[in-house]
Computed example of a mutant assay.
Amino acid sequence: MTARLPDGPDDGPAAELLRARRGGVLTTLDRLLLHSPPVAEGWNALLGALRGATTLPADLRELVVLRVAVLNAAEFEWTSHAPIARRAGLTDLHLRVLRTADATAEPVWSPVQAAVLAFTDASTRHVAVPDEVFAAVREHLDDRQVVELAVLVGGYGMVSRLLVALAVPPSDGEVPG
């Protein structure tokens, strides 16, 4: 499978910003974004912040990313983040359960993971988050973390939609930073 668009230019200031965040490499996704340097720069800033500057624990961040990938059928996103999720403490059992239709019903999650997963499902599937789901998240996360969670779900919803719309093929594994 190949992406629906060819790679964009891999030089210029936007490409250098992407390379800097990714440790010197450009991914297939980056090369597509570079068709629009201003979008690539904004994307880079937002996704860099979501991946490296929030106060959410890594296991919660990767739980969100992988669940959004499943719900939106973004295999590139799953393949890229599964190794990161394992390093963050998610087990093979967690990853298997995330791929099920009703992952929130499985008793493998800590209370905070269950609350974050329910929030992710509600926000991704229905946009609106029911009061009881929001209240469950508030039992575990402070104001900043709630904002970071909501932006993380929305941000990776954006990522998955671009990946699926442009038919970006899965990577061979983890995508850097």
Score class of each variant (00 low, 15 high):
Arg87Tyr: 04
Val147Tyr: 08
Val129Gln: 10
Ala69Asn: 05
Leu117Ile: 05
Thr100Tyr: 02
Val116Trp: 00
Ala122Trp: 04
Arg125Glu: 15
Gly89Glu: 01
Ala136Leu: 06
Thr124Glu: 09
Arg138Ser: 15
Pro111Leu: 10
Trp109Asp: 02
Asn72His: 13
Asp92Trp: 01
Asp131Gln: 13
Asp102Phe: 10
Ala69Ile: 09
Ala88Ile: 03
Glu106Ala: 15
Val147Arg: 00
Gln145Glu: 11
Arg67Trp: 05
Ala85Lys: 01
Ala88Gln: 04
Ala122Glu: 10
Glu75Thr: 11
Phe119Gln: 10
Phe76Ile: 10
Ile84Glu: 06
Arg87Gly: 07
Leu141Cys: 09
Val137Pro: 08
Ala136Val: 08
Asp102Tyr: 11
Val151Glu: 13
Asp142Glu: 05
Gly89Arg: 10
Ala115Val: 08
Trp78Pro: 05
Ser123Cys: 14
Thr104Phe: 06
Val133Ile: 15
Val133Asp: 00
Ala128Pro: 02
Glu148Asp: 07
Leu98Trp: 02
Trp109Cys: 08
Asp142Arg: 06
Val127Arg: 14
Val108Gln: 06
Ala135Thr: 13
Ala118Lys: 01
Gly154Ser: 09
Thr120Ser: 09
Gln113Asn: 07
Asn72Gln: 14
Asp143Pro: 00
Glu132Ile: 08
Leu152Gly: 07
Leu149Glu: 10
Arg87Met: 00
Arg96His: 12
Pro130Glu: 09
